[in-house]
């Protein structure tokens, strides 16, 4: 089943040039897909179009086989959860508990069920001891984890992360990533679309989409995408560490093309 089916999508902010320019792609249910590209390449605009936060000029978006229209907007949004970049911009409640409850109230979840759901998801992001805490007393990583708990509590089928970890310190980044991995283990049907600058995250995704000037210029598995060295170099995007390492070794006459990860590479080099 397709989680996302986007066809020939166009969008322009100023009516002059297209911020999203003829974009088409598909995402299978249960996949972890990274979208990479420089600032201004149209990544976040694309996410907002899928959510119906912006309305597109031309093209079509299907979310879990349902066409995105004014009528279906509400139902489609109920299937998508989005986490934005700045943890301070998405904390709505006065306490962690209120914040997670906010989404549930909007979904008309009965009050007697809420407590259990809140406990469950606060536990999942390891924020149970903080349920009564105010946002001012939380770190950025903790706030982002609350945002994720709030989103997951509404059991979305598709989660969009819009640079959700880029404002966090290394520990916060790691916490958020670990939380997501756990969520995926628990629900293999959960589809994740992650807009990111983190090339190492992209390298371990199921698929990578590269955007440049409003267009998708590459789309495929990390291996396929990062093999296009010339194209990526031309737009000045970085490569995963292992690929750069292999290339530097090759220049020294050590050919390690067929090794997939750092452990294999280390084994080979130490043999």
């Amino acid at each position: 089943m397709l989680a996302l089916d986007v066809k020939n999508l166009f969008f322009s902010y100023d009516g002059k040039h297209d911020a999203v320019n003829d974009v088409s792609f598909q995402v299978q249910r249960g996949k972890y897909v990274s979208i990479i590209g420089h600032n201004g390449s149209g990544k976040s605009t694309l996410a907002k179009l899928i959510m119906g936060l912006l309305s597109f000029k031309k093209g079509e978006v299907k979310v879990f086989d349902q066409l995105l229209t004014n009528e279906s907007l509400h139902e489609i949004r109920s299937k998508i959860g989005i986490v934005f970049q700045n943890p301070d911009n998405q904390f709505i409640g006065a306490t962690v508990k209120d914040d997670i409850a906010f989404g549930l109230e909007n979904r008309l979840v009965p009050h007697e069920d809420m407590e259990d759901i809140i406990q469950k998801f606060a536990g999942k992001v390891r924020m149970k001891e903080f349920l009564e805490s105010e946002p001012a007393n939380l770190s950025g990583g903790q706030k982002q984890r609350v945002a994720i708990a709030g989103i997951l509590a509404m059991s979305p089928d598709l989660v969009i992360l819009d640079e959700a970890t880029s404002m966090l310190d290394p520990k916060g980044k790691r916490e958020v990533k670990e939380t997501l991995l756990e969520m995926r283990m628990e629900n293999p049907n959960l589809t994740i679309l992650s807009i990111t600058h983190d090339i190492e995250e992209a390298a371990i995704s199921d698929e990578v989409i590269v955007m440049h000037q409003g267009r998708i210029i590459l789309n495929g598995t990390p291996k396929e995408v990062f093999a296009n060295e010339n194209i990526l170099k031309e737009i000045d995007l970085d490569f995963p560490f292992i690929q750069k390492m292999k290339k530097a070794l090759k220049l020294q006459g050590i050919d390690v093309d067929n090794l997939a990860n750092l452990e294999e590479l280390a084994d080979f080099l130490c043999r």
Binding site: K244, M245, A248, L249, Q252, I254, A266, D267, C270
Partner: peptide, 28 residues
């Protein structure tokens, strides 16, 4: 990665390693 290599017994001169290219040279 340097640690992974050292743990497996490859003797690298750490003072020479600053980036990927210098590491490749040190490994060779």
């Amino acid at each position: 990665f340097v640690k992974l290599l050292s743990d497996q017994g490859l003797e690298l001169n750490l003072n020479e390693i600053k980036d990927i290219d210098s590491l490749a040279t040190a490994i060779t």
